[in-house]
Structures are given as structure tokens and as C-alpha cells.
Amino acid sequence: MNWMSPLFTIVGVIIGSGVTLLVEQWRWQRDHQREAKQILRETFVSYLTHTARAHESMRQVSEGVHSSPDERRLAILAAFTEANVYEERFRLTMLAPTHVVELAVHSFRKCRAVRDLLASGTETSDDAFRSAQLEYFRAVQATSDAMRKELGIPKLLFVPLGYPPDQPPVTPL
């Protein structure tokens, strides 16, 4: 009896099944990587958005009319808390690589320093605020640059927020 034909059929089935499994594994990995990158992108955007919301809300609240310094302080603290920056920071620490987390925590601390400065009574027109704001802007820029690099997005060729690097904090862009 001729065993060559059934043997080649079995070998063909094994090769075909193996190739199919390899292709499916490759597709699964590609889809998984794509999904992970999308989740990371959304986490990065959410963190930057919440941090910016906290900063802007605190600035606006501090410029409002308050019946007492204590009321102003509490309103600034509430604006920071309501922006949910803590939650976003913790979410980021679970997903982002260490170098991005370090920069994000640094920008968080700069935002918190702005909060503490405003809550202590500093006005947005004071040099101390402008200096702290510039430090915050630079920290956010460094964080954003690292996030963009991690996602494979080119670095921006301009400063999207704050002040130009060569200019003292006099007039925001």
C-alpha cells in the first residue's frame, strides 16, 4: 500500500494548522499591543487634562471675590480636589513606564505647589505665582514630551503652554 499520499496529507494538515496558529498568535499580539497603546494614550491625555483643569480652576477661583481669606483658601483647595488629579496620578502609575511616572509626579507636585501658594494668599499677579506657574508649565511640558515619545509621537517644535523658554514670565502666550 502507498503511504506517501496519506503521510503528505497529514504533514500538510500539521503545517497548515501550525501556520494558522502562528498567524493568529501574531494577530492577537498585534491587537493586544494596539489596545495597550490606546489605553496608555487615553491615560496620558486624561492625566494632562485633569492637571490642567486643576491649575486653571485654582487660578480662576483665586481671582474671584471671597468674603474672607479662609473662604478663598478653601475654594482653591476644593478646585484642586474636584479636578481628580490624585486619581489620575494613581491610574498613571499603574500603566506608564517609570520615567514617565517620575515626570508626571514632578508636574503633579508643581501643580500642588501652585495650589499651596494660592491658598496661602498669593495673588496671580504676584511674581511668586508667576515663577511657580512657569515651573509648573515646564514640568508639564517635560511630562508631555516624555508621553509623546513613549507613544511614538514626535516632539512639538513649539511651546504649547506657558512662556517661551527664552522669555521671562511677563506675558503668557
Rank of each mutant, 00 (worst) to 15 (best):
A139G: 01
E87T: 07
R112W: 08
Y163W: 14
T98R: 12
Q133V: 13
S68H: 12
Q141S: 11
S68T: 13
I153M: 08
V170D: 03
P97N: 11
H66P: 13
S144K: 02
A83T: 11
M94A: 09
S68K: 12
V65C: 01
L134E: 15
S131C: 00
V114Q: 06
S67W: 05
N84Q: 13
R112N: 12
P168W: 12
R89I: 09
Y136P: 00
E82I: 01
E102C: 04
A113V: 05
Q133H: 08
P97Q: 15
E87S: 10
A75K: 04
P97I: 08
P69C: 06
H66E: 02
P164H: 11
E71T: 10
R73D: 03
F108V: 06
P164D: 11
T143Q: 08
D70I: 07
A96P: 00
E71R: 13
K149T: 05
R89S: 10
T171W: 09
T122R: 09
R115M: 12
Y136K: 07
D126E: 12
A96V: 07
P97D: 14
A142I: 02
V65M: 05
A79G: 06
L117E: 04
R112S: 05
R115T: 11
A142E: 15
P165N: 06
K110C: 08
G64E: 04
M94E: 13
V105S: 06
Y136S: 01
H106V: 07
A78C: 06
E88H: 12
P169K: 08
P164F: 06
G64H: 10
E71G: 04
I153H: 02
L95T: 12
G64I: 06
V101S: 15
H66D: 00
K155P: 00
A83C: 03
L117M: 13
T171Y: 08
G152S: 05
V105P: 01
S131M: 10
R73T: 02
S107H: 06
L117Q: 09
A96M: 08
A113D: 05
A79Q: 00
E102T: 12
V159N: 09
T81Q: 12
S107Y: 00
S107V: 15
F90A: 11
A142Q: 02
H106F: 11
R130G: 01
S68L: 10
G64R: 09
P165M: 05
L103D: 02
S125T: 12
K110P: 03
D145V: 13
Q133A: 07
E150Y: 00
F90P: 02
A119P: 10
A75W: 07
R130M: 15
L117V: 00
V159M: 10
G152T: 00
T98A: 10
R72A: 14
R138N: 15
V65G: 08
D127Q: 14
P154A: 15
L157K: 07
V100L: 04
E87Q: 04
Y136Q: 01
A119K: 02
P165Y: 01
A128D: 13
V65H: 10
F129Q: 06
E82L: 03
F137R: 13
G64C: 09
A79H: 00
G162M: 07
